[in-house]
Design a protein around this nucleic acid. Structure first.
Lengths: 252, 252
DNA sequence: CCGTATTTTGACAAGTCGTCATTTTTCAAT
DNA sequence: ATTGAAAAATGACGACTTGTCAAAATACGG
């Protein structure tokens, strides 16, 4: 397996370096702050070499997004395998998403850039496909849980409503909230003190609205989430903690 | 009132022309397709003149967004004044948003661009403030309805849940769905045939989840929405129809 | 008709991206 | 070691940005 020549290893490492530098540039200086010249300068390579790794800067952005999306899928799969009633497995997905957001605080900013048509259109079919794969697998994880709930009699969807429609509800709410969060300075002004909590509660209420049992009033939702985070996602939670501490230290 | 010199009128008209040209450019060629040079060329003015109207292209984008946002606020206010039970007034807001989306199909694409930090940061405080004003007024409209519902006994929010939190739920879901819609080619692949309908139903279920009466099962939600669109928003609906026809003609 | 005030202009500086002919490096075969 | 062909790295270049500003064109009151 490890039959990579020194050259090949060098190339692979450099790719990682490019992504690392690009991520920081994007984070610190936004989309316009990302420039091929400056990445090359930072790594002490020429611009031409950069273009041997990525055909344009949009490809770098998509590569970054795909990297976090890969990890998100791992989290989704683990959450969907949480050995419990479907309603609790959905809660585990919610916990997973929150952990993901904490582990990749930049992800939604990048995804936002990527969704611009003039950025998206420059990306390669290969990377696009990979992204779509990750996305549809994530949707599939959740709709699988929905189907299990129906099979077990915990949930009955009305005529004409598909599991995917319900998943779309959770997805759009989560995506919307995270995007607003990532790009809005002042959510507190409007009266939302703890947006993550608000999101979790709203999602729970959406499921309640579909009559998915047990209803959020029938069990301690917060306690469950906390337990899932602490026990089932122990490793990820710890990692997120460390990252938060590091961020604190840097800002201090 | 009409004490504008010919010169002043010229200037005002030109501003409208700039926005018109810029909107089409953005729509047809995306963010990267918008260039000051090309706007100037299209209007047969020099670039310098453009910069007398807008200090940068980001300002143009925000001006466009503010224009549609102004109309959105009008729609929200009208919807909130729908003379009926709060639950139906909320439905009217939903109808209003859908009409808005149809009247300004470009709005969410532009808002998406605007939310990029590197775009937002270049805009002027005056225009930012105007946008925030529109947004908080819209949120205020909806939270007013929520408060009315509580006062009338149709809705009881649990301890620690504010009306704004519920509004955040509706907002994030709507925003998320519209953004996904505006930037995703293939929602059908995932199994969402009619996203607008799916959104409306999910929002209704969210309110059901909070126990806001009458529940969506207790009245014909679709019929109500249709009636509101046809009767209460007659003018706007007709306008949207015309726009759709025009779009069809153009694509044919 | 004149002189000032305002508006318009487009050449310019500084900065992008992506290309591609040259140069440099690598490495297997001698 | 030496060679020479293949692969990789380079950076000057063309074509594009945005935003500025001295100079030219225009407007307009007296």
């Amino acid at each position: 397996m490890t039959t990579l020549t020194r050259k090949q290893r060098e190339v692979r490492d450099r790719e990682a370096q490019i992504l690392e530098v690009a991520r920081n540039m994007l984070l610190e200086q936004g989309y316009h702050g990302l420039s091929m010249d400056r990445i090359a300068e930072a790594l002490e390579y020429s611009k031409g070499t950069m273009y041997q790794h990525f055909s344009c800067k949009e490809e770098i952005i998509l590569a970054l997004v795909n990297a976090s999306l890969t990890d998100r899928l791992v989290i989704f799969r683990k959450a969907a395998s949480y050995p419990s009633r479907p309603r609790e497995r959905i809660a585990a997905v919610g916990v997973g998403v929150e952990l993901f957001v904490r582990l990749y605080p930049h992800h939604f900013k990048l995804e936002q850039v990527l969704r611009l048509s003039s950025v998206w259109e420059k990306t390669s079919p290969e990377r696009r496909q990979f992204m779509h794969h990750c996305e549809s697998q994530c949707v599939g994880c959740v709709s699988g849980i929905v189907r299990d709930a129906i099979a077990q009699g915990d949930l009955t969807l009305p005529e004409g409503v598909t599991p995917e429609q319900l998943v779309f509800g959770l997805w759009s709410m989560s995506f919307g909230a995270q995007t607003i969060l990532a790009s809005s300075t002042s959510l507190v002004d409007i009266g939302i003190g703890d947006p993550h909590r608000a999101l979790a509660q709203n999602q729970a209420r959406l499921l309640d609205g579909y009559g998915w049992r047990p209803l959020s009033s029938e069990f301690d939702y917060e306690a469950l989430s906390e337990r899932i985070a602490r026990e089932y996602f122990a490793k990820e939670t710890e990692q997120a903690m460390k990252l938060a501490q590091k961020a604190n230290r840097n800002s201090a």
